[in-house]
């Protein structure tokens, strides 16, 4: 793909755009390619589900969007601006990342929810409303965050990101540690945000049913490449590539078997 000048500032219809993105990491047996030639784009208010086997590069692709990792090749545009030309604090405020393992910061739930506004020098958020947004009981506010269950932590982590008022949300296996009910609550709340404020979402999951439920578009990744991109319904109904057909067959047979957490490449 040709390189566009980075100086363009007009609002872009594309929330996220990858142009020939590559990422290589050093390893014991020489440089290892994590991502190769990834291109594609996602419009505002759309939900992209990203599927593929462990180690396909899904988490790495997410972490390029808010520059927690730097692409070695190609460019990543957020709202039409290359990530490396953004003010970092602003980029990461607007592109929120829900990590696979939620990390609670020291203090209470309320302290955790107050962190983003403190970082960005903004007024304290309404913790009550934030917890309601993710379906948690506001009575949790004064509880030490470390004492919560896994599902509660995951939702507090989501609420903490929402207090930044992001317009793009990246979810990395956000529900893999949750029971089905908690996972569906998460899905519902994210879906509601997509509808109410045109949140753009990239949702990485091993759960094919979830990918189908949540997605407007779906990309299948394998060995660092995007092997198929399409509208979610079409992708699941009529996959085009042999590799996608095989992956879907294997995945559906395994049903809701989840791969061991931590196998996915870390961001």
């Amino acid at each position: 793909m040709p390189h566009a000048p980075v100086a363009k500032h007009e609002p872009s219809p594309w929330a996220i755009e990858f142009r020939g993105v590559g990422r290589t990491l050093p390893s014991e047996d020489g440089p290892k390619s994590i991502l190769t030639g990834v291109s594609g784009r996602l419009a505002r208010g759309r939900v992209l589900t990203l599927i593929g086997p462990s180690g396909a590069g899904k988490s790495t692709l997410l972490s390029l969007c808010n520059l927690l990792q730097t692409p070695d090749m190609g460019e990543v545009f957020i709202w039409g601006r290359e990530v490396r030309t953004w003010l970092l604090a602003e980029l990461r405020r607007r592109v929120g990342l829900v990590m696979q393992q939620p990390v609670m910061l020291p203090g209470t739930v309320a302290d955790n929810l107050a962190v983003p506004s403190r970082l960005h020098g903004r007024p304290q958020p309404d913790g009550y409303r934030l917890l309601q947004q993710v379906g948690l009981d506001p009575s949790l506010l004064q509880r030490p965050a470390a004492e919560l269950s896994g599902g509660q932590k995951q939702r507090v982590a989501l609420a903490r990101i929402l207090s930044n008022e992001p317009d793009i949300l990246l979810v990395d296996e956000g529900t893999s540690g949750l029971d089905r009910e908690s996972a569906e609550i998460m899905e519902r709340h994210v879906r509601r945000l997509v509808a109410s404020r045109s949140l753009t979402v990239v949702w990485v999951t091993h759960d094919l049913e979830q990918a189908r439920r949540m997605g407007d578009e779906t990309w299948l990744m394998d060995k660092g490449r995007v092997v198929e991109q399409g509208i979610t319904e079409a992708f699941f109904e009529a996959p085009q590539t042999e590799i996608a057909k095989r992956f879907l067959r294997a995945g559906l047979r395994a049903d809701r078997r989840t791969l061991a957490p931590g196998e996915e490449d870390e961001s």
Binding site: L88, A89, V103, L119, R160
Partner: peptide
């Protein structure tokens, strides 16, 4: 993990 979480939230 804590430091990365803060960075991801936009901490300098």
């Amino acid at each position: 993990a804590e430091v990365w979480t803060l960075l991801a939230l936009g901490a300098n």
